[in-house]
Amino acid sequence: MTRVYAILAALTVVTMVGAMSWLGFSGGEGDDQFAQCRGGAVAGGAGAIGGPFTLVSETGETVTEEDVIDKPALIYFGYTFCPDVCPIDNARNVAAVEMLEERGEDVKPVFITVDPERDTVDVMREFTDAFHPDLLGLTGSEEQVKTATTAYRAFSSKQDSDDPDYYLVDHSTFTYLTLPEHGFVEFFRRDDTAEAMADRVQCYLDAS
């Protein structure tokens, strides 16, 4: 019986080590200043997400990732013609930002389109202004948007439609937390509430 327990214990350790490697853990908590804040892990580590991009803001200005991530930011990829998911997610993200603002924290909400064909500068500005004056809308050429989505591992796929002006776009729905000195540090899923997001973002801000 003792031998059986020993084998099971060894298998448990091996399984845990394998899972940690698959999820992208690089070592113990001592190697990660944000270990106490993380709600998940990314294969390849946090450094595998994010990178350079150039887009066009809702005011018509060309911006880079350095301009966008000049303060803590919550970045979401979607499109303005999205019938339900994007409005709900953007409203949730803005609510989290407002909660943090009440705590004295300045976090920028960002909305990057995956449908630049329809989401022009004017369309983006009208959409973001309806949610929050600080919600930054970003568009650009097909190539520019592709570079940004690839950098953040965001998925998008235009659905076939008989009407070229009316179509849906399948897309991933993660929200990415970025910090100026660190780049991408965390992601949030659709089932994360605004309160939960605000608390986890606060943890990162306190630890940075």
Rank of each mutant, 00 (worst) to 15 (best):
M1Q: 08
T2C: 01
T2W: 13
R3I: 11
A6C: 02
I7M: 08
L11P: 00
V14R: 09
V17Y: 13
M20A: 15
G24M: 11
G27E: 04
E29R: 14
G30I: 09
I49W: 05
G50H: 07
F53I: 05
T54G: 05
T59E: 07
T59L: 07
T64Y: 04
E66T: 14
Y76T: 00
T80F: 05
C82H: 08
N90L: 13
N90Q: 14
R92F: 03
R92L: 11
V97H: 02
E98I: 03
R103C: 00
G104H: 06
E105P: 00
V107L: 06
E117G: 01
T120V: 09
D122W: 10
M124R: 01
R125T: 05
F127R: 01
T128N: 03
P133G: 05
L136Q: 07
G137E: 04
G137M: 10
T139R: 09
T139Y: 10
G140T: 04
Q144G: 07
V145N: 08
K146T: 13
T147H: 03
A148F: 03
A148C: 07
A151K: 12
Q159H: 15
P164Y: 12
D165S: 13
L177I: 10
T178Q: 06
L179M: 11
E181V: 05
E181L: 03
G183W: 10
V185E: 00
R189W: 09
D192V: 08
T193C: 09
A194Y: 06
M197Q: 08
C203Q: 01
